[in-house]
């Protein structure tokens, strides 16, 4: 475990906890895309199947349980909680996320490391995670005003992916550990998706103005 990997996991943990705390405390999910949250729950459900078969470390298992629990809790809050669900912007959160799931499923069937159910689902989760943020980015552009917690959430997610790329570079040079090119490319695509958000987030922070994304 290197510092980039640990920092990446902690940033990822912070992003989901920021979101869960926001929804739990102010009982509102304004600006949050349910579609993106459902996609993340699916990403974790299909990636962490090995939690019962392969034991890697206590850290690994605990983090997987936290990510599974928090992502499904967020979906439950937005779908089922009698107060939170009222602030869900159904009309604006219209990204057809099934159009993301199917291509990722097909791509996983075409390009994978091993043709086993567990490995196919794992590969599917890698592809899906790369595009899962799209409904949220679209919603942010539509609603234009970004309340700072949602902005921080997206920022932390982007930071977690950037740190993972540094982690892969570090592991390549130190452990001669080769991240499979599937992981590398999907991770790179995902990080690039955040690039323009980062630009506007940094600009707003520098000019000390409210974050506005161009339509």
């Amino acid at each position: 475990m290197n510092i980039f990997r640990l920092a990446g996991d902690m940033t990822h943990l912070a992003s989901v906890l920021v979101l869960l705390l926001k929804i739990h405390t102010i009982k509102s999910c304004a600006g949050v895309s349910l579609k993106t949250q459902e996609l993340y729950a699916l990403v974790f459900a299909t990636r962490y199947l090995d939690i019962f078969t392969d034991f890697i470390s206590v850290y690994n298992t605990v983090m997987k349980l936290i990510f599974l629990g928090s992502s499904f809790s967020i979906v439950w809050y937005i779908r089922r909680h009698k107060i939170v669900r009222r602030s869900y912007d159904k009309e604006q959160d219209t990204f057809r996320h099934y159009f993301l799931v199917l291509p990722c499923l097909l791509l996983a069937l075409l390009i994978h490391e091993k043709f086993t159910v567990k490995e196919l689902l794992w590969t599917f989760s890698i592809y899906l995670e790369a595009v899962a943020i799209l409904p949220q980015l679209v919603l942010l552009q539509r609603t234009r005003n970004i309340d700072n917690l949602t902005g921080q959430y997206v920022f932390l997610l982007g930071a977690y992916r950037s740190l993972y790329i540094l982690n892969w570079i570090y592991r390549y040079f130190t452990e001669r550990h080769f991240v499979h090119w599937i992981t590398w490319i999907a991770g790179l695509v995902q990080t690039l998706l955040y690039a323009d958000f980062f630009y506007y987030y940094f600009e707003s922070w520098k000019n000390n103005v409210k974050l506005q994304l161009p339509a």
């Binding site: 990997r5 090995d50 890697i56 690994n60 990510f67």
Partner: peptide
């Protein structure tokens, strides 16, 4: 599973 698991990252 047998041997080193395929994926050790989250």
């Amino acid at each position: 599973g047998l041997g080193q698991p395929m994926h050790d990252e989250l």
